[in-house]
Simulated scan of single mutants.
Amino acid sequence: MSIQVDVHLRRGAFALEAAFQAGPGLTALFGRSGSGKTTLIDLIAGLARPDRGRIVADGATLVDTAAGVFLPPHRRRVGVVFQDARLFPHLSVRSNLGFGRVFARQPRDPAAFPAVIEMLGIGHLLDRRPEGLSGGERQRVAIGRALLARPRLLLMDEPLAALDEARKAEILPYIERLRDEAGVPIVYVSHAVSEVARLATTVTVLEAGRVAASGPAEAILRRADLVPIHEAEAGALLDMVVEGSDPETGLTRLAGLAGRLLVPGLTRTPGTRLRVRVLPARDVLVATERPRGLSARNVLSGEVAALTVSGSEVSVEINCNGAILAARITAAAVRELGLAPGSPVHAVIKSAAFDPAGIGLLRRPVEI
């Protein structure tokens, strides 16, 4: 399943000219407020009409202005999950979920209901009403309702924005499972780097209504130049596997292409595959000799892959056995260290730099 979008829309002084493609997994629309993320979601859902353009989802043409095609929202088979769950307050969870099946307009699949209930962990909520649910539980029910409509595409417009940190932590594992098991492409709007880093397969960055970049999450999120407002949060994504934990130190050992890492204790069993966010790039130290006598627990060896100058600072990409790490240091440090593409270096990272909220599950194998 895939989606192709190429649309143009002008609203007053704002102009949206965006083109991107998304395949299986989760594509994050990422950028600062006012960049056009929600407008793009509205166009895909059929809640707005482009001045010109084309949208194709799973081989079905939803919009083609040149051919005069514009499917109304109820015929698009596009599920939408908003910031607020928008559940019917007078109905039980079971009845709210039933509306998804009513609007599916597809042959009924008896296995769909129990499968969605199990995937989202909401079986114990079926007889309750929305007022008795937490924010995270309401969002899980809203996702279930959208899935039971058997969409060819799922749109999620900042679904965690209204939740506190505890509720976000509750629902993120379910969105990871949705990404990996539902078999439906997801377009996910967010301006939170931690969410995007943990969830996204692909990232499309919007700036002032235009696509500034689009590609694999690990390649996009280490570039501090794409969205300057998030510059301090640029960092690398590494695929790792849990080796074990040390109860005495409270640290968990991870291994991957980049090498071995010690991170704050995780409640993960050995062999679990993880995506680990190294953040921020400014906190990654670069040394030309292997350092000794440091409190930092992690030293990864590699060579400089690229240097990108931005004023007095330089973004350094370090190739650690095929995994790319990001650091951001001063131009003066680059000169004094004599760094250039191909220079052997060591990246030094404190264990405390790893935020457990930025560590998510991976379904694909991890190379070591």
Rank of each mutant, 00 (worst) to 15 (best):
I122C: 01
G271N: 06
I171W: 08
A142L: 05
V102R: 14
M1V: 08
A217T: 04
L300N: 04
R128S: 01
L97R: 02
E303V: 08
A353H: 11
E165N: 13
A352R: 11
T330H: 09
A161V: 09
E243F: 10
S92N: 06
R11G: 07
G59L: 03
T330V: 10
G68V: 05
P72G: 04
V116F: 03
L226E: 10
V7Q: 08
I368A: 15
P110T: 04
P159R: 03
A347Y: 01
T267E: 15
D42N: 15
P130A: 03
F20P: 10
L261W: 05
R273F: 10
A19S: 15
L199S: 13
A48Q: 15
A323H: 04
L155I: 04
P72Q: 03
L300V: 03
G144Q: 03
V203W: 06
D42H: 14
L147K: 01
G144R: 03
R292C: 06
C320D: 09
S315K: 11
T272C: 12
I143L: 10
P356T: 12
G271K: 08
R10T: 12
E233F: 13
A326S: 08
L43K: 00
G250T: 02
T38D: 00
A219Q: 09
D225T: 10
E195Y: 01
A85I: 04
I44T: 11
R94N: 05
P50D: 08
S194F: 11
A232E: 15
R363N: 09
R152E: 00
V345I: 08
L274T: 06
R364L: 13
E17G: 10
L254R: 02
R273Q: 13
S92P: 06
Q4S: 14
R268M: 13
T267L: 15
L237Y: 05
V205D: 08
A219P: 02
A281Y: 02
S214G: 08
A234T: 03
T202L: 08
L238G: 11
L148V: 11
G293H: 06
G250R: 00
R76F: 00
S214A: 13
R101L: 14
R52T: 10
